[in-house]
């Protein structure tokens, strides 16, 4: 960290500064810090955008949808089919949760790409909180639906008795590492993408400071930023999709543990 800080010191832009949590309204609730921060602000913005998009777009409830309505319906059917195909028909009651999850992550990621915006999903605690919610929800659903039989999930059928302890141990470890991989995937992708963008932006500033020659030199990193922004848009959508579809698969395991 210190080395990074020193390195950043010689760089015109600190690539980590964008991840700083800034308190806007300091608050303390029961000894916990509950300040309204820039992260909270952009979460609220995301929630407002998602709500506006899904509610206002359906305002006219047209039989032949307009653009916004068609887009809202597209999101709906996309997630609906995802839940139905990956988690099964019985899991459709979790559709509102998966939909909220996908929309929240998707819009947080995309809105975070705007300059000066904060990406709440670039913080491990946010993605981990989402992942642990999914993990606990899925585990409790599985135990609620199947009782003790849920633990058959850890005992794959057709494995020789000799190998069984090893296989069960591996299954248990992989099961409990799910929330970690689930959250780190999203967090790391967002973090890395934003750092990369910022680093290239730093190059543009470095070249820009060099005068006329530098302006030409700045073209290359500038083009990189444009290309990377496109890539990050893809990553933003893809990671939201991956998060949602993994949730569906975990739900599927909870619904059908015996295989």
């Amino acid at each position: 960290m210190a080395a990074e800080a020193e390195h950043a010191g010689s760089f015109p832009v600190d690539p980590l500064h964008q991840f700083m949590i800034q308190k806007i309204v300091p608050l303390q609730i029961g000894g916990f810090d509950a300040s309204f921060t820039n992260s909270s602000l952009w979460m609220v913005v995301t929630a407002c955008v998602v709500t506006a998009f899904t509610v206002l777009a359906m305002g006219r409830k047209a039989m032949v949808p307009g653009r916004f309505q068609a887009a809202a319906e597209m999101f709906y059917e996309f997630i609906y089919n995802m839940v139905r195909d990956n988690a099964g028909h019985e899991a459709i009651r979790f559709f509102p949760f998966v939909f909220t999850l996908f929309m929240f992550i998707f819009f947080t990621n995309v809105i975070g790409l705007f300059p000066y915006a904060f990406t709440a999903t670039s913080h491990i605690i946010v993605t981990f909180a989402l992942a642990i919610t999914v993990f606990l929800g899925v585990t409790l659903t599985g135990i609620y639906l199947h009782g003790f039989k849920f633990f058959r999930l850890f005992v794959p059928s057709g494995v020789p008795i000799v190998l069984l302890p090893l296989v069960v141990a591996i299954e248990v470890i992989s099961y409990f590492s799910r929330p970690i991989s689930h959250s780190v995937r999203l967090f790391a992708n967002m973090l890395a993408g934003h750092i990369t963008l910022e680093v290239f932006a730093g190059f543009v500033l470095t070249f820009g400071a060099m005068g006329t020659v530098g302006y030409f030199g700045a073209i290359l990193p500038m083009a990189m930023i444009v290309a990377l922004t496109g890539l990050e848009l893809l990553v933003a959508a893809l990671q939201a999709y991956v998060f949602a579809i993994l949730t569906c698969m975990y739900l599927h395991d909870a619904m059908h543990p015996g295989h």
Partner: peptide
């Protein structure tokens, strides 16, 4: 920063979930 992020996440996500499940999704 963890506690404030988690608290606001729970709050925002919870409200968003209610808005989606009660208002937006049934309409769609």
């Amino acid at each position: 920063t963890f506690s404030s992020q988690v608290i606001w996440l729970v709050l925002v996500f919870g409200v968003l979930y209610l808005l989606m499940s009660r208002l937006a999704l049934p309409r769609i």
